[in-house]
Amino acid sequence: MINRYRRGLFIIAFLAAPVTLYLVYVISPYAQAFYIATTDWRGVTATPNFIGFDNFVRLFSDSIFWKAVTHNGALLLLLPLLTIVIALFFAFLLNVGGGGRGAAGVPGSRFYRVVFFFPQVLAVAVVAVLFQQVFRPDGSGMLNGPLMALGLRPVGFLSDPDVAFWSVLGVMVWQAVGFYVVLFSAGLASIPRDMFEAAQIDGAGRVSLFFRITLPLLWDTVQVAWVYLGILALDVFAIVWVMTDQHGGPDFSTTVMATEIYRNAFTYFRFGYASALGVVMFFFTVGFAVLSLRLSRRERIEY
Protein backbone atom coordinates (compact mmCIF):
# COMPACT_ATOMS: atom_id res chain seq x y z
CA MET A 1 0.00 0.00 0.00
CA ILE A 2 2.63 2.44 1.13
CA ASN A 3 4.69 1.35 -1.80
CA ARG A 4 1.95 2.07 -4.27
CA TYR A 5 1.35 5.47 -2.67
CA ARG A 6 5.02 6.31 -2.94
CA ARG A 7 5.10 5.19 -6.51
CA GLY A 8 2.17 7.46 -7.33
CA LEU A 9 3.91 10.34 -5.62
CA PHE A 10 7.03 9.61 -7.61
CA ILE A 11 5.13 9.70 -10.89
CA ILE A 12 3.27 12.87 -9.95
CA ALA A 13 6.51 14.56 -8.98
CA PHE A 14 7.87 13.90 -12.42
CA LEU A 15 4.69 14.79 -14.28
CA ALA A 16 3.71 17.92 -12.36
CA ALA A 17 6.22 20.25 -13.97
CA PRO A 18 5.69 19.27 -17.61
CA VAL A 19 1.91 19.08 -17.26
CA THR A 20 1.80 22.48 -15.57
CA LEU A 21 4.00 23.96 -18.28
CA TYR A 22 1.83 22.37 -20.95
CA LEU A 23 -1.37 23.64 -19.39
CA VAL A 24 -0.05 27.16 -18.92
CA TYR A 25 1.80 27.66 -22.17
CA VAL A 26 -0.12 25.48 -24.62
CA ILE A 27 -3.64 24.65 -23.52
CA SER A 28 -4.48 27.97 -21.89
CA PRO A 29 -3.41 30.17 -24.85
CA TYR A 30 -5.45 27.84 -27.11
CA ALA A 31 -8.48 28.30 -24.92
CA GLN A 32 -7.93 32.04 -24.76
CA ALA A 33 -7.71 32.20 -28.56
CA PHE A 34 -11.28 30.90 -28.71
CA TYR A 35 -12.36 33.73 -26.45
CA ILE A 36 -10.35 36.40 -28.30
CA ALA A 37 -11.91 35.21 -31.56
CA THR A 38 -15.27 36.46 -30.31
CA THR A 39 -14.01 39.96 -29.56
CA ASP A 40 -12.97 43.00 -31.59
CA TRP A 41 -9.61 43.17 -29.78
CA ARG A 42 -7.04 45.24 -31.66
CA GLY A 43 -4.13 44.21 -29.49
CA VAL A 44 -3.52 47.53 -27.82
CA THR A 45 -6.33 48.05 -25.37
CA ALA A 46 -7.06 46.28 -22.11
CA THR A 47 -10.81 46.05 -22.67
CA PRO A 48 -11.90 44.21 -25.85
CA ASN A 49 -15.60 44.15 -26.73
CA PHE A 50 -17.51 40.90 -27.15
CA ILE A 51 -18.97 40.71 -30.67
CA GLY A 52 -20.16 37.11 -30.87
CA PHE A 53 -19.55 35.32 -34.14
CA ASP A 54 -19.05 38.43 -36.29
CA ASN A 55 -15.44 37.51 -37.00
CA PHE A 56 -16.43 34.06 -38.24
CA VAL A 57 -19.13 35.49 -40.47
CA ARG A 58 -16.60 37.95 -41.86
CA LEU A 59 -14.01 35.32 -42.69
CA PHE A 60 -16.43 33.47 -44.96
CA SER A 61 -16.17 36.27 -47.49
CA ASP A 62 -12.42 36.85 -47.01
CA SER A 63 -11.18 35.81 -50.44
CA ILE A 64 -7.51 36.01 -49.47
CA PHE A 65 -7.97 33.66 -46.54
CA TRP A 66 -9.71 31.10 -48.74
CA LYS A 67 -6.95 31.48 -51.28
CA ALA A 68 -4.56 30.65 -48.45
CA VAL A 69 -6.67 27.60 -47.58
CA THR A 70 -6.42 26.29 -51.15
CA HIS A 71 -2.66 26.73 -51.00
CA ASN A 72 -2.53 24.72 -47.79
CA GLY A 73 -4.76 22.14 -49.46
CA ALA A 74 -2.44 21.86 -52.45
CA LEU A 75 0.55 21.51 -50.14
CA LEU A 76 -1.31 18.86 -48.15
CA LEU A 77 -1.66 16.77 -51.30
CA LEU A 78 1.64 17.46 -53.01
CA LEU A 79 4.18 17.85 -50.24
CA PRO A 80 3.73 14.34 -48.74
CA LEU A 81 3.38 12.73 -52.15
CA LEU A 82 6.54 14.23 -53.66
CA THR A 83 8.60 13.97 -50.50
CA ILE A 84 7.69 10.35 -49.85
CA VAL A 85 8.21 9.24 -53.45
CA ILE A 86 11.63 10.89 -53.65
CA ALA A 87 12.67 9.78 -50.17
CA LEU A 88 11.58 6.19 -50.81
CA PHE A 89 13.51 6.14 -54.06
CA PHE A 90 16.68 7.39 -52.42
CA ALA A 91 16.28 5.18 -49.35
CA PHE A 92 15.82 2.15 -51.60
CA LEU A 93 18.93 3.02 -53.59
CA LEU A 94 20.97 3.66 -50.47
CA ASN A 95 19.98 0.43 -48.73
CA VAL A 96 18.74 -2.21 -51.13
CA GLY A 97 19.01 -1.08 -54.72
CA GLY A 98 22.74 -1.52 -55.14
CA GLY A 99 22.31 -4.59 -57.29
CA GLY A 100 24.52 -7.61 -56.98
CA ARG A 101 23.93 -10.32 -54.43
CA GLY A 102 22.39 -9.54 -51.09
CA ALA A 103 20.71 -6.28 -50.19
CA ALA A 104 23.22 -3.46 -50.30
CA GLY A 105 23.16 0.20 -51.22
CA VAL A 106 24.76 1.86 -54.21
CA PRO A 107 28.49 2.62 -53.83
CA GLY A 108 29.12 5.57 -51.52
CA SER A 109 25.73 5.24 -49.86
CA ARG A 110 27.08 6.07 -46.39
CA PHE A 111 28.39 9.36 -47.67
CA TYR A 112 25.14 10.25 -49.42
CA ARG A 113 23.11 9.46 -46.34
CA VAL A 114 24.95 12.20 -44.47
CA VAL A 115 24.68 14.64 -47.34
CA PHE A 116 20.93 14.11 -47.65
CA PHE A 117 20.51 15.09 -44.03
CA PHE A 118 22.21 18.49 -44.39
CA PRO A 119 19.07 20.51 -45.29
CA GLN A 120 17.36 19.22 -42.17
CA VAL A 121 20.12 20.64 -40.02
CA LEU A 122 19.65 24.19 -41.34
CA ALA A 123 17.14 26.47 -39.64
CA VAL A 124 14.10 27.28 -41.75
CA ALA A 125 14.96 30.98 -41.81
CA VAL A 126 18.43 30.15 -43.12
CA VAL A 127 16.96 27.97 -45.85
CA ALA A 128 14.54 30.76 -46.80
CA VAL A 129 17.25 33.39 -47.11
CA LEU A 130 19.51 30.93 -48.95
CA PHE A 131 16.85 30.25 -51.54
CA GLN A 132 16.11 33.93 -51.99
CA GLN A 133 19.62 34.10 -53.38
CA VAL A 134 19.29 30.86 -55.35
CA PHE A 135 16.10 32.21 -56.95
CA ARG A 136 17.41 35.73 -57.64
CA PRO A 137 16.00 36.96 -60.94
CA ASP A 138 19.23 38.47 -62.29
CA GLY A 139 22.61 37.07 -63.36
CA SER A 140 23.72 36.53 -59.77
CA GLY A 141 20.96 33.99 -59.10
CA MET A 142 22.22 30.42 -58.86
CA LEU A 143 19.50 29.14 -61.19
CA ASN A 144 19.01 32.17 -63.42
CA GLY A 145 22.74 32.81 -63.89
CA PRO A 146 23.28 29.67 -66.00
CA LEU A 147 19.95 30.19 -67.78
CA MET A 148 20.95 33.70 -68.78
CA ALA A 149 24.43 32.55 -69.80
CA LEU A 150 22.71 30.15 -72.21
CA GLY A 151 20.80 33.07 -73.66
CA LEU A 152 17.46 32.11 -72.11
CA ARG A 153 15.15 34.54 -70.35
CA PRO A 154 15.43 34.45 -66.57
CA VAL A 155 12.57 32.77 -64.70
CA GLY A 156 10.89 34.81 -61.96
CA PHE A 157 10.97 31.96 -59.46
CA LEU A 158 9.66 34.16 -56.68
CA SER A 159 8.42 37.15 -58.67
CA ASP A 160 6.11 35.41 -61.15
CA PRO A 161 2.79 34.60 -59.45
CA ASP A 162 2.37 31.51 -61.63
CA VAL A 163 5.71 30.07 -60.57
CA ALA A 164 6.18 31.25 -56.99
CA PHE A 165 3.99 28.59 -55.36
CA TRP A 166 5.97 25.82 -57.05
CA SER A 167 9.20 27.38 -55.83
CA VAL A 168 7.89 27.27 -52.27
CA LEU A 169 6.82 23.65 -52.71
CA GLY A 170 10.22 22.81 -54.17
CA VAL A 171 12.07 24.30 -51.22
CA MET A 172 9.85 22.48 -48.73
CA VAL A 173 10.42 19.15 -50.48
CA TRP A 174 14.15 19.85 -50.68
CA GLN A 175 14.29 20.45 -46.96
CA ALA A 176 12.08 17.54 -45.95
CA VAL A 177 13.47 14.75 -48.14
CA GLY A 178 16.67 14.17 -46.14
CA PHE A 179 14.88 13.38 -42.92
CA TYR A 180 12.56 10.89 -44.57
CA VAL A 181 15.44 9.19 -46.37
CA VAL A 182 16.88 8.53 -42.92
CA LEU A 183 13.50 7.49 -41.52
CA PHE A 184 12.87 5.05 -44.36
CA SER A 185 16.44 3.75 -44.15
CA ALA A 186 15.80 2.91 -40.52
CA GLY A 187 12.56 1.21 -41.57
CA LEU A 188 14.39 -0.78 -44.21
CA ALA A 189 17.04 -1.82 -41.75
CA SER A 190 14.37 -3.50 -39.63
CA ILE A 191 13.22 -5.65 -42.54
CA PRO A 192 15.10 -8.96 -42.34
CA ARG A 193 17.74 -9.25 -45.07
CA ASP A 194 16.74 -12.81 -45.94
CA MET A 195 13.43 -11.54 -47.32
CA PHE A 196 15.28 -9.59 -49.97
CA GLU A 197 17.67 -12.46 -50.62
CA ALA A 198 14.81 -14.92 -50.93
CA ALA A 199 13.05 -12.65 -53.41
CA GLN A 200 16.26 -12.23 -55.39
CA ILE A 201 16.77 -15.98 -55.55
CA ASP A 202 13.20 -16.22 -56.86
CA GLY A 203 14.31 -13.92 -59.65
CA ALA A 204 12.91 -10.57 -58.53
CA GLY A 205 14.50 -7.51 -60.17
CA ARG A 206 14.93 -4.12 -58.53
CA VAL A 207 11.49 -2.95 -59.55
CA SER A 208 9.58 -5.89 -58.18
CA LEU A 209 11.84 -5.90 -55.10
CA PHE A 210 10.67 -2.37 -54.45
CA PHE A 211 6.97 -2.86 -55.09
CA ARG A 212 6.56 -6.39 -53.74
CA ILE A 213 8.85 -6.32 -50.72
CA THR A 214 10.07 -2.87 -49.72
CA LEU A 215 6.90 -0.85 -50.05
CA PRO A 216 4.48 -3.26 -48.32
CA LEU A 217 6.85 -3.84 -45.42
CA LEU A 218 7.54 -0.11 -45.04
CA TRP A 219 3.86 0.85 -45.17
CA ASP A 220 3.67 1.73 -41.46
CA THR A 221 6.60 4.09 -41.74
CA VAL A 222 5.15 5.65 -44.87
CA GLN A 223 1.93 6.37 -43.03
CA VAL A 224 3.76 8.05 -40.18
CA ALA A 225 5.64 10.14 -42.74
CA TRP A 226 2.36 11.06 -44.38
CA VAL A 227 0.88 12.38 -41.14
CA TYR A 228 4.03 14.35 -40.26
CA LEU A 229 4.24 15.90 -43.70
CA GLY A 230 0.54 16.67 -43.72
CA ILE A 231 0.90 18.62 -40.49
CA LEU A 232 3.97 20.36 -41.90
CA ALA A 233 1.89 21.36 -44.92
CA LEU A 234 -0.89 22.76 -42.76
CA ASP A 235 1.21 24.83 -40.40
CA VAL A 236 3.85 26.09 -42.84
CA PHE A 237 4.74 29.67 -42.00
CA ALA A 238 8.38 30.71 -41.75
CA ILE A 239 9.48 29.60 -45.19
CA VAL A 240 6.67 31.58 -46.82
CA TRP A 241 6.97 34.61 -44.57
CA VAL A 242 10.73 34.96 -44.96
CA MET A 243 11.33 33.79 -48.50
CA THR A 244 8.50 35.14 -50.62
CA ASP A 245 7.99 38.72 -51.75
CA GLN A 246 5.43 40.65 -49.71
CA HIS A 247 5.15 37.78 -47.22
CA GLY A 248 3.00 35.39 -49.23
CA GLY A 249 3.09 37.17 -52.56
CA PRO A 250 3.53 38.20 -55.24
CA ASP A 251 -0.16 38.93 -55.44
CA PHE A 252 -0.94 36.49 -52.59
CA SER A 253 0.12 33.59 -54.83
CA THR A 254 1.98 31.78 -52.05
CA THR A 255 0.10 32.85 -48.96
CA VAL A 256 -0.99 30.23 -46.42
CA MET A 257 -3.29 30.24 -43.40
CA ALA A 258 -0.56 30.97 -40.89
CA THR A 259 0.75 34.00 -42.80
CA GLU A 260 -2.77 35.43 -43.05
CA ILE A 261 -3.21 35.01 -39.31
CA TYR A 262 0.07 36.80 -38.70
CA ARG A 263 -0.77 39.54 -41.20
CA ASN A 264 -4.17 40.21 -39.67
CA ALA A 265 -2.77 40.31 -36.17
CA PHE A 266 0.48 42.20 -36.57
CA THR A 267 -0.07 44.28 -39.71
CA TYR A 268 -3.78 45.05 -39.56
CA PHE A 269 -3.99 44.92 -35.77
CA ARG A 270 -7.10 42.78 -35.86
CA PHE A 271 -6.20 40.32 -33.13
CA GLY A 272 -9.79 39.21 -32.69
CA TYR A 273 -10.21 38.39 -36.36
CA ALA A 274 -6.79 36.75 -36.53
CA SER A 275 -7.78 34.52 -33.61
CA ALA A 276 -10.92 33.54 -35.50
CA LEU A 277 -8.74 32.50 -38.44
CA GLY A 278 -6.59 30.60 -35.97
CA VAL A 279 -9.63 28.76 -34.64
CA VAL A 280 -10.57 27.75 -38.18
CA MET A 281 -7.02 26.55 -38.81
CA PHE A 282 -7.17 24.59 -35.56
CA PHE A 283 -10.23 22.72 -36.78
CA PHE A 284 -8.62 22.01 -40.14
CA THR A 285 -5.58 20.56 -38.41
CA VAL A 286 -7.56 18.49 -35.92
CA GLY A 287 -9.77 17.28 -38.77
CA PHE A 288 -6.74 16.15 -40.73
CA ALA A 289 -5.24 14.39 -37.72
CA VAL A 290 -8.46 12.50 -36.93
CA LEU A 291 -8.99 11.57 -40.56
CA SER A 292 -5.48 10.29 -41.08
CA LEU A 293 -5.55 8.25 -37.87
CA ARG A 294 -8.86 6.68 -38.92
CA LEU A 295 -7.67 5.84 -42.42
CA SER A 296 -4.36 4.39 -41.34
CA ARG A 297 -5.70 1.74 -38.94
CA ARG A 298 -4.20 -1.47 -40.10
CA GLU A 299 -2.80 -4.60 -38.59
CA ARG A 300 0.87 -4.72 -37.96
CA ILE A 301 2.99 -7.24 -39.76
CA GLU A 302 5.02 -9.51 -37.53
CA TYR A 303 8.20 -10.78 -39.07
Binding site: L21, V24, A33, P48
Partner: peptide, 13 residues
Protein backbone atom coordinates in the same frame (compact mmCIF):
# COMPACT_ATOMS: atom_id res chain seq x y z
CA UNK B 1 5.86 27.40 -13.53
CA UNK B 2 3.73 29.17 -10.94
CA UNK B 3 5.40 32.46 -11.69
CA UNK B 4 5.02 31.71 -15.38
CA UNK B 5 1.33 30.97 -14.96
CA UNK B 6 0.81 34.51 -13.80
CA UNK B 7 2.72 35.99 -16.70
CA UNK B 8 1.54 33.78 -19.54
CA UNK B 9 -1.71 35.52 -20.30
CA UNK B 10 -2.52 35.92 -23.98
CA UNK B 11 -5.57 37.99 -23.21
CA UNK B 12 -5.10 41.58 -22.16
CA UNK B 13 -4.91 42.29 -18.47
Amino acid sequence: PVAGALAACATPA
